[in-house]
Design a protein around this nucleic acid. Structure first.
Length: 415
DNA sequence: TAGGCCATCTGGTCCT
DNA sequence: AGGACCAGATGGCCTA
């Protein structure tokens, strides 16, 4: 009688072909009709209860038959997982060649009747249709499984792409475009790093604008070197006098005498909390914080014209202003190459600690009150949503957000 | 409601 | 013979 094994049910084998005990379901006739045209057959899947979207997590499969259909099998789709394991050959699309047993030259070849192959010989039209139907079902399952593996690969690719916002799910085509552009951007970054090592490009401001990169990809634009310059945040040129700003390495310190306003020969400084705003008579304005970051509103103030910020934005070195650092009386120019390197190192150290701090924060919220980074951390933290804000200098890289949400499961998106 | 995206089915083709 | 791959067709779901 009927087999109750799913493997027997689904696999095409000689037993099915050689006897007439196969199932006789009221399957859609079009499935059994050989089609010679490439135009697919229109079949109404709703009629037989097929769910076109299986639940991936549970590996639930589509419902093959309608509820009123009385199957000759008690539970024909009972062991679908075992079936999937059977048809899943490998994780790659490239099939692995299996070693075949060497043929025995002495073994007589099997003879078949003239004009009949193994399928058609001694088979009634009903049997042939049943065979074709089973082959079609197997092919459908393989195709479905193949597409699932393809989608899983796309999901893995999505995981390593720095989308913006973080929870954005790119479509398939967007994922491929973004991956292409991202790889290009990373390769250009490496090239730029080589230039840095050779001294052709300064290091500060070296980062990628992932949002722009993603927008390029979604719009289907291929990243070229010109486009890359648009998404690659190179530092402003020294001759920019258009009011643009640039990051620099500075440190704000409390004013002497507890005041929050100080006038100097080059301008004025206003201290608000841990942030110092300086207005330079020569047009160069800057903002600094106690944590070591800052920016100029006019790059012209960078370099030789930085006398003003020298007063209260240095963690080291001499100072000749009354009430500030009486132990140092040096009068040499403050913002020289040496001090720049000191600032730079301090800046990098602070940045590294911030990164570490980000990871610590994911594990222990109480550490967030660290006094060392309290000022800027508070600027970067949204206490209501328990998230770091993205519009800050250090936490605008969503790679760290991804790590945050994935329990520090770091992905290979480091530059 | 139109359009985009997606999963699925399907037949054809190529290869083993 | 059968599996992998492909592309066309179709319908479901979602969103503007």
């Amino acid at each position: 009688m009927f087999s109750t094994s799913f493997e027997d049910y689904c696999d095409f084998n000689e037993s099915i072909c050689s006897n007439d005990s196969g199932f006789d379901r009221s399957y859609n006739d079009t499935l059994c009709t050989p089609i010679s045209t490439s135009t697919p057959v229109i079949h109404d899947t709703s009629d037989n209860g097929i769910s076109l979207t299986p639940a991936k997590q549970t590996h639930a499969r589509r419902k093959l038959f309608s509820d009123d259909y009385e199957s000759p099998f008690p539970n024909p789709i009972e062991d679908i997982t075992a079936f999937e394991d059977n048809i899943k050959v490998d994780n790659t699309s490239t099939p692995i060649k299996k070693e075949r047993k060497p043929k025995d030259p002495n073994k007589p070849k099997r003879k078949y009747a003239n004009g009949k192959n193994r399928v058609t010989r001694c088979k009634s039209p009903t049997q042939i249709l049943r065979i074709k139907r089973n082959r079609r079902m197997k092919a459908n399952d393989r195709e479905r499984n193949r597409m699932h593996m393809l989608n899983e690969a796309l999901d893995r690719l999505r995981c390593v792409l720095p989308t913006f916002p973080e929870d954005t799910k790119l479509t398939k085509i967007e994922t491929l475009r973004f991956a292409h552009n991202y790889i290009f951007a990373l390769s250009q970054t490496l090239e730029s790093l080589d230039n840095i090592n050779s001294g052709q490009i300064p290091t500060e401001g070296l980062s990628l604008n992932y949002e722009k990169l993603q927008n390029y990809s979604i719009q289907g634009e291929k990243i070229t070197k010109d486009a890359f310059r648009d998404i690659f945040l190179l530092p402003s040129k020294p001759d920019d006098h258009d009011g643009s700003y640039r990051n620099f390495q500075g440190f704000s310190r409390p004013f002497p005498n507890g005041s929050n306003f100080l006038q100097t020969p080059e301008g004025v400084l206003i201290n608000v909390g841990n942030v110092t705003v300086s207005v330079n008579n020569k047009g160069g304005n800057c903002i600094t914080s106690t944590t070591g970051s800052g920016f100029f509103t006019n790059p012209a103030s960078f370099g030789d014209d930085l006398n003003q910020q020298n007063y209260y934005q240095r963690p080291y070195g001499p100072c000749n202003y009354e009430g500030y650092d009486t132990t140092n009386t040096g009068t040499e120019e403050y913002f020289n190459q040496k001090n720049y390197e000191l600032f730079k190192n301090a800046f990098e150290n602070a940045k590294d600690k911030r990164y570490q701090k980000t990871i610590e924060f994911t594990n222990d919220y109480s550490k967030f009150t660290s006094p060392v980074y309290n000022c800027n951390d508070m600027h970067s933290y949204n206490g209501e949503s328990n998230e770091y804000l993205q519009n800050t200098y250090y936490y605008n890289d969503q790679r760290y957000y991804r790590n945050f949400y994935r329990n520090n499961n770091i992905v290979n998106a480091q530059i």
